[in-house]
C-alpha cells in the first residue's frame, strides 16, 4: 500500500488561514489502512481545525466526505454536486489522489493534508515500512524476494558495501542491511549460487530517471 502521514496541524491550518469554509475529503484505500487519511482521520482533522479556528475567534464551516478512493474518476465524480460551494478542498489522500482531484475540478483549490511516504507494508499494528521503490524493473527473482533497490540504502545491486556491520546498515543501527537480508534469504532457500551472479548495471530509465511514467493497455481501453 501507499503509506502516508498527516502533515503538522500548523501547516494545514496555515494553508486555509483566510478561508471561511472547507471541504475535507478522505480516501478509503491505502491511507485508511495506514490510519492517515480515512474517515476516522477526516473526523479528527475536522475536529482539530474546528477547535483551532474557534480558539482564534475565526470559525470555519467544515464538510467531511470520504470517497472509496481518489485515484479513480468515478469516485471523484461523487463530489461534483457540492464541491463548488467550498472555497478550498483539503484532500487526505496520497499525492496521486490530491492531484487527480485537482485535475478533475479545475476551479477548486485542492490542498494536501498528508505527506506521502512510500510503498510499504504493515509490519505490525501501527508500524509501516518501505518495501518497493516502483523502479519499473522488478529484480526480486534474483535476490530471494528481498529488494536491493528499496532495502539497501544505496540501492546497490551487488552488495553489501563496506558499511554493513553485524547485519545493520551504516546509516543507522535500526536499519537492517538489505544485502544481509538477501544473503540470509538465499541461503535459507538453498540458492546462494545466485549471489555469485553479477547483476549488470541498472537501466534507471524505467525508474523516475525516464520521466513521468505511464502504463497503457490497449485491450482494456474503451
Amino acid at each position: 500500500m501507499i503509506v502516508a502521514e498527516r502533515k503538522p496541524l500548523e501547516q494545514i491550518s496555515s494553508m486555509i488561514e483566510s478561508n471561511s469554509n472547507v471541504l475535507i475529503v478522505g480516501c478509503g484505500e491505502c491511507v485508511t489502512v495506514c490510519s492517515a487519511g480515512g474517515k476516522k482521520e477526516v473526523e479528527i482533522l475536522a475536529s482539530a481545525i474546528n477547535m483551532l479556528r474557534s480558539k482564534e475567534g475565526k470559525p470555519i464551516e467544515i464538510r467531511q466526505e470520504t470517497l472509496e478512493r481518489q485515484c479513480d474518476a468515478e469516485y471523484l465524480e461523487q463530489l461534483r454536486g457540492f464541491i463548488g460551494e467550498y472555497e478550498v478542498v483539503i484532500s487526505m489522500a496520497c499525492g496521486a489522489g490530491v492531484q487527480f482531484m485537482a485535475e478533475k475540478y479545475k476551479n477548486s483549490l485542492v490542498l494536501p493534508a498528508l505527506n506521502t511516504k512510500f510503498i510499504g507494508v504493515t509490519e505490525e499494528q501501527g508500524v509501516w515500512s518501505e518495501r518497493c521503490h516502483a523502479c519499473g524493473d522488478c529484480k526480486l527473482h534474483l535476490t530471494g524476494g528481498v529488494c536491493p533497490i528499496a532495502r539497501c540504502s544505496k540501492s546497490l545491486l551487488n552488495g553489501p558495501c563496506g558499511g554493513s556491520t553485524n547485519g545493520k546498515c551504516e546509516i543507522s543501527p535500526d536499519v537492517v542491511c538489505g544485502w544481509q537480508l538477501i544473503i540470509e534469504r538465499l541461503s535459507d532457500l538453498g540458492q546462494l549460487e545466485k549471489y555469485e551472479e553479477i547483476i549488470p548495471i541498472n537501466d534507471w530509465s524505467t525508474n523516475r530517471d525516464g520521466g513521468p511514467r505511464k502504463v497503457v493497455r490497449e485491450d482494456l481501453r474503451l
Binding site: K40, E43, I44, S47, A48, N50, M51, S54
Partner: peptide, 11 residues
C-alpha cells in the same frame, strides 16, 4: 474510548 470522543468533548 477513541481519540475522536476525547476531541468531541473539548470541541
Amino acid at each position: 474510548v477513541d481519540v475522536i470522543h476525547l476531541l468531541h468533548a473539548f470541541e
